[in-house]
Amino acid sequence: MTADEIKLAIIDILSDIAPDEDISDLKEDVAFRDQLELDSMDFLDIVMELRKRYRIQIPEEEYTELASMSSTVKYLEPRMRDVKQ
């Protein structure tokens, strides 16, 4: 998957978790926590959705990499390069 595809995949996961939010104007560099007030349970859900949908395993010490859209895409890009949509 390309960086753009990964971004779309994350947007899809976020709109699944928070259907009432307007994800379209999400700011790239601001933490999800601050924009959407996601808590630790929600972060775990992003990790689990990635595992469910793309078989990506993220070790617990690296959860912090998923703080914002830009850091998430940067972190996932090398790991999802070979993943097919």
Binding site: D16, L36, E37, D39, M41, D42, D45
Partner: peptide, 20 residues
Amino acid sequence: PKGTRRGPLARLLRQLRFAW
């Protein structure tokens, strides 16, 4: 109310994937 992001109701809606 709709749009609230904190608290038990908001949390359970997200966890169960329900819209408000």
